[in-house]
Amino acid sequence: MTMIQALRSALDVMMERDPDVVVFGQDVGYFGGVFRVTEGLQAKYGKTRCFDAPINEGGIVGAAVGMAAYGLRPVAEIQFADYFYPASDQLVSEAARLRYRSAGDFTCPLTVRMPCGGGIYGGQTHSQSPEALFTHVCGLRTVMPSNPYDAKGLLISAIESNDPVIFLEPKRLYNGPFDGHHDRPIVPWSRHPLGVVPTGHYRVPLDAARVFREGRQLTVLAYGTMCWVAESAAQMTGIDAEIIDLRSLWPLDLDTVVASVRKTRRCAVIHEATRTSGFGAELTALVQEHCFYHLEAPIERVTGWDTPYPHAQEWAYFPGPSRVGAALRRLAEA
């Protein structure tokens, strides 16, 4: 399956199993979503289970919070992560805090899916990676898959979770893995082992990272598209990097991170999002705190620049394999 098919399969499985699962958002109903993730679901489950919404992110998330408070398990879609901002109040002030402020009287088992990330000539408002704006919010879970197998298993876990989950989907990975070599033809998921996805129900647990590539020389903390970029950089440089795909950004699997860095004694943190106060800053701080006496070099951060995401300068902006590779070399030689 492609990542799109895997996500659709997760929704299909959960809608089949649980009549409380309801899917809605802009263009997700009849049309099946601008990225086809919800294709066929309305025809299969009817208009009250999968339906179109007005162009109103605050309304979509606000209504979903109300549905969740009722007892449904809404899966809301924000068409692009770049457009979640009108829903910020509902996510931060409401979804994230409902359980806490009501002492469990009301809960919010809500999943908000949003395609994110760049590398597609999306310009300023179709490329952003706003994960740090969610990881900073107590009460939210933030998740990002890097492949179809994880995408389905994580989305099922997100829908089954009784906590609100921000489910970020790197749209650059929808049809195939992308390692940052934009000049090469894309390889479809059908030719990759992680494109082999069971048709039934399975979970990939939240709070569990995955060792994306085992290595001994240094650790790369990555998620989403950057896992593939890191792998390509390791190949290009010949550096034996251990790549950790965090999968769940926050709460995260600190044990796996710490075990890896204590083993390799060197660490690079990479993400597409802008650098300052990005999620990488939290990862850097955690590694420093937990691995200080094991570290043999300063922690490297390779990220998007502190600018809005440009259009024409896409490949100068995107932290591709050469920039990541340079950092790995610096780190290995330090």
């Binding site: 309801v22 009250t48 289970r49 605050g58 309304g59 606000g62 209504a63 979903a64 919070v65 109300g66 549905m67 969740a68 408070a69 009722y70 007892g71 449904l72 809404p74 109040d89 509902q90 002030s93 409401e94 805090r97 409902l98 402020r101 009501s102 009287d105 009301f106």
Partner: peptide, 29 residues
């Protein structure tokens, strides 16, 4: 909840759309 009284939030107006969502859920069910 038992008295049909949703958790009050300090953020104004947020509950107005949530009421609509709750009503939609009741209709969906």
């Amino acid at each position: 909840k038992r008295a049909g009284f949703f958790s009050v939030s300090g953020n104004l107006a947020t509950q107005f759309i949530q009421a609509v969502g709750w009503a939609m859920a009741s209709a969906i069910r």
